[in-house]
Each structure stands twice: as structure tokens, then as C-alpha cells.
Simulated scan of single mutants.
Amino acid sequence: MSGTQAWGFTDDRGTELGAARVPLRVVAYVRAGAALLDLGVTPVGVYGSGHDGGALDPAKAGGLGAAGVPYLGPGRALDEAALRESRPDVIVDVTYDGKSPYALDEAVAERLGVPLVALSVGNELTLPAILGRFAALAASLGAEPAGAASAADPAADPAADLAADLAAAEAALRAVAARSGIAVLALSGAGPEQVHLARPQAWPELAYLAELGVRLIEPGPGPGANWLTGDWAGAVGLRPGLVLFDEREHATLPYGLPSGVRLTPWNPETPPSPAAYARFFRVLAEALAV
């Protein structure tokens, strides 16, 4: 896609965005930036959220570090001068409520005069729909479209290859899940006294795991739409055979779980790309097969 073409995109808030030419310089929230990188769009910079610090969280970074994409700091404490120096044509964030960008105050983009795209990662969309929306944005920004040929291999179809790899990972996980029957608990550690237990249907990727046959544990009634907050004794009492633990830097490792419980890292902010989820599904399939 030529950068001289007019550009338009409607984000998941229903906001119609446009520019006189296709945006070439993309600044994005880390999760969105890692997904776009996987999909063929390299950001000129990424920023974090309120959970993040002054350095890029390796659990969330995907391929951003290896690609040399600069980290501009946590979003709501971001130095606007640093963002301005990146000369973005567009900013890409995520939204959990379909109303507001998650990590960056929209007023920042308004002061820069730059369109801000917010794509949903909440449970109003299924995981395949979320992946589809990020693919659509990447295509609008000039990523290799489905069916495009490369100079080295005129018959190559990168998008089809990514889809096939994800489908193979899903099939492998479905087959292992059907045999194992292991009860899986997803959680985020908050120190020795507290843990947040994920409600599977509140998380598109966990809900999708359930569709693939993974036996996910519901933490039970109580406050919290996405998490039930309690203590580690409560987590042990749910008798998980495998724990998906939040591997982001702000989370803590599990405390006091029985020695027989298997542990597998889980990033609740996995980049919404086929490649990232194929990797996650394969890791989980290996853990369930042990």
C-alpha cells in the first residue's frame, strides 16, 4: 500500500479515523505494537500502561526488543516531548470497555493532532474476532496482505501460512486437552497474601481455551468482573492440576502450591497476532501432555 493514499479506519469505539495518507510512523501500546510487528508493521515506538515501569516488560514485549523498537515509558506518565519526538502519524491503543483507550490519555493524541486507534481486547469479542481486527488494521497500515506474493517466492502467502500455523497449534491443543482432563487455573500473583483468580469467560483467550477443550476452573462467586481476589489457600482449595500464572513483571510467582501442581507462564496481554497465540497454545499443549 502506498503511503500517498488516503487512509481511513473505524476503530472498536466506533470512531471513524482518517488521514490524507496512509500512516507510516506508528506509536502503539506495547501489546498492540507487538501484535502489529508480528503482522508486518514495525512501530517507531511503544509505551506501557500503569502496570509498567521505566523499562520494557520482556513478558509483554514479543519481538519488539529484538526489532530495536524504542520504549517511551508508561503511558499515563509518558513524557509528551518523547512522544512528540517520535513524530507519530497514528497512535494505536487497546480498549477493554469499547469506550476509552486503555493505556494513553486520549487528550495526549489530541494535543499532538494525531489519530488514536483503540482496538477491543475485551470479552465483547471472541479471540478470532480480536485477531481479525488487528489483522485488518495492519493491512490498512500497509502490512503484507493475504495472497500477496514475495519477490523470493511468487507463490508465497504469508497470511495463509500464519493462519495455518495457528490452526495446527489449536488442533494440537485440542487433541491434548481431550486426553488430559487436567483442571487448569489461571491467576495473577499479588504477593504472599493475595492472588487474583481469573474468571475464564471474562478473558477472550481463556474462553477460547475452553472451546478447545481445556478444563478451566471457575473461581466462584464474589466481587470482580475479571478476577476474584483472595488468598493462596483459596487457590489451593480449587485443586488445580496446572496453574497458568501471570508472567508480567508486576505480578509475583505462585506461593504455597502443592508440589504436584504444574506451572505454566501466561501473559494476560499476549499480543493479538496468530504467531503469538500459536506459541502460547503450543506451550500449553506441552504442559498438559506431561
Rank of each mutant, 00 (worst) to 15 (best):
V283C: 01
F281W: 08
E85G: 10
A34V: 00
E286D: 15
V290R: 15
G241P: 03
G230T: 15
N123Q: 12
F9M: 11
Y47S: 00
I217S: 01
V44S: 12
A278M: 09
E205T: 12
A186Y: 07
H51C: 00
P219E: 01
L187R: 09
L24E: 15
G230Y: 05
G237V: 03
H250W: 06
V108C: 09
Y102M: 02
A136M: 06
L112A: 04
D57F: 10
D165V: 02
Y255S: 08
L112S: 05
A275S: 14
S180K: 04
L185V: 11
A32H: 00
P272D: 08
G122S: 06
G63W: 09
V30N: 00
G122I: 02
L131R: 13
A210P: 00
S188Q: 12
A287P: 11
L119N: 05
A285F: 10
W266N: 08
A287D: 13
L112V: 03
E205C: 10
P23I: 07
G113H: 07
L125V: 13
A59N: 11
Y71E: 02
A61R: 13
L242T: 07
S188H: 08
D246M: 03
F245K: 02
V94R: 00
G237H: 02
G147M: 02
G54S: 15
G40D: 07
V90R: 03
L162H: 12
E85W: 05
E124P: 01
R133K: 12
D12M: 06
A148K: 02
L238H: 07
G40T: 07
N267C: 10
G45K: 05
A172E: 14
V30G: 00
T229P: 08
H51N: 02
R199S: 06
G189I: 14
L56G: 01
A35H: 01
A34Y: 02
D231S: 14
G224P: 08
E211I: 00
G62L: 12
L64Q: 11
A148Y: 01
E144V: 13
E110M: 01
A148H: 06
P74N: 07
L131S: 14
A202H: 08
T264I: 02
W266Y: 14
R179T: 10
R31Q: 06
R174F: 08
A109C: 12
V69N: 09
S188E: 11
G222V: 10
A275P: 12
G230S: 15
V184M: 08
G234E: 11
A28N: 06
A172D: 11
S188A: 15
W266I: 05
A186R: 11
S2P: 02
A156V: 04
G222C: 13
Q5W: 13
P145S: 04
L24K: 15
A149T: 06
E193M: 13
A285S: 12
E247A: 08
V27Q: 09
A178K: 09
L166A: 04
E16H: 13
L242R: 10
L131I: 14
D79Q: 12
L64M: 10
L209M: 15
Y102R: 01
P145V: 04
L39G: 04
A61I: 14
A175L: 08
L137Q: 06
G213D: 01
E80V: 15
G33W: 00
G54R: 10
L257A: 08
W232E: 06
A156K: 05
T4V: 12
F245R: 06
P254V: 13
L141K: 07
V22W: 15
P192M: 13
